[in-house]
Design a protein around this nucleic acid. Structure first.
Lengths: 224, 224
DNA sequence: CCGTCTATCTAACGGTTATTAGAATATAAA
DNA sequence: TTTATATTCTAATAACCGTTAGATAGACGG
């Protein structure tokens, strides 16, 4: 019944693109992608971060690997997964941006995560970069330190959320603090900001993570 | 068992993004999106173009509408669908680019569609634009004329594929012809180029369609 | 070699989705 | 109003996917 020419070829092409689509059609796989955008991780770490079993994590990773969005590297007993390149992070940022703009339910849920006053949250990246360079603000990376080491915002200092309480004295009370984490869906910066404000520091949350930062064309830093 | 805070909120957020992912996880829905990127269409037209039943088309459009990627507009007996904004076209271009780069099967299938010598196919958009402006090449839009009217490449002339045979005299034999259609997956420009070459014209295919062109930041034209 | 840890494979279940046919709705024309 | 056309809704089936449990394989320490 197929009248038009090349219908089989076309079907094949769209099917291949749909494999990428299928890979990003599951909430847990998206969460795994977001975590992997911060740096490579063992399966066990991924399972813990996404709050699912190792078995299920493995199954999802298999799907992502089949779509060539992630790849694995064996090191002794562990297998470290990573996103295959930065375009995958761009895809994640784009999907999230699209969803955020379109889906009302998401906007409602996001409202809970936004730090209330957040003057600096709306500030554009370039201005923040300039202020950080001049030392007018302290940019704080509250992710685990391995993620900081993979890549972080320029002039950012690493104090993982778990160590924040014991390292408060490292944070000067003079400067305002801008804390960031894995991105808009991550709760670490929110927690850090709330705690710092209770301790009398002036702290606001930056919604962007490294993926969003890079997608905006802004530079990242890697320490040696 | 959920230890971490905000797990419910996070699940909700990822689920919302996954709705966008689900919408682009079906080959037919992707095909519909690509067609809608060329301009608004009736359900019946979409069904014919994607080679599926009207009922199934309607069901897929419902999904796409739920994800807020497309919207419908009633006009008399017909309902015209269109992509909700240009970001949707960007998503399509990005997904296709990702798939093209990663999936070997797709590369193999693409090889069949590429016009062999295609000197101009590799030429960058800016250079083509300059040549077209100086009248050194004839840029030919072989899509249906309503799609040309919605948006087309600058300096492009519209001769729908169906009318090509009867309007051959409009195409000067002096200038090389660059034909384009809906994009890399569309077969119309390929057919046009093959036919023109048999008629002694120097014709090559441009793989980009208007969505790819715009995603590269190049200007489009709309006639009044 | 044996046990342990990490990750995957297999099989199975329950729920979801694609697809089709038939009924229903909305608009325009007669 | 009746009739025709375009589209959607409902119901039903078959295929697919997420999830879990149990068995399997690879790497390290004894």
């Amino acid at each position: 019944m197929t009248k038009k020419p090349g219908r089989e070829v076309k079907n094949l092409l769209y099917e291949q693109v749909a494999r990428i689509g299928k890979a990003v059609s599951s909430p847990k796989r998206l969460e795994l992608i977001e975590i992997l955008c911060q740096g490579e991780k063992k399966v066990e770490e991924l399972a813990a971060a996404a709050d699912i079993s190792v078995k299920l994590t493995s199954a999802h990773l298999k799907e992502l690997k089949a779509a060539r969005l992630v790849e694995g590297r064996r090191e002794g007993k562990n297998i470290f997964y990573r996103v295959v390149d930065a375009q995958v992070a761009d895809l994640w940022v784009m999907l999230r941006a699209l969803a955020e703009e379109r889906l009302l339910e998401l906007q409602a849920a996001m409202r809970d995560l936004v730090t209330r006053p957040g003057e600096l949250a709306a500030m554009n990246g370039k201005d923040l970069l300039a202020q950080a360079k001049r030392g007018e603000v302290l940019v704080l990376d509250v992710r685990p330190s391995d993620e900081y080491e993979t890549a972080h915002l320029p002039y950012a200092r690493s104090i993982p959320l778990a160590e924040l309480k014991s390292r408060l004295e490292e944070i000067s009370a003079d400067k305002p603090v801008v804390a960031y984490c894995r991105g808009p869906f991550c709760l670490m910066a929110k927690e850090a900001v709330e705690w710092l404000n209770r301790k009398g520091r002036r702290a606001v949350r930056l919604e962007s993570g490294v993926a969003e930062w890079r997608a905006q064309g802004l530079p990242l830093a890697v320490d040696d």
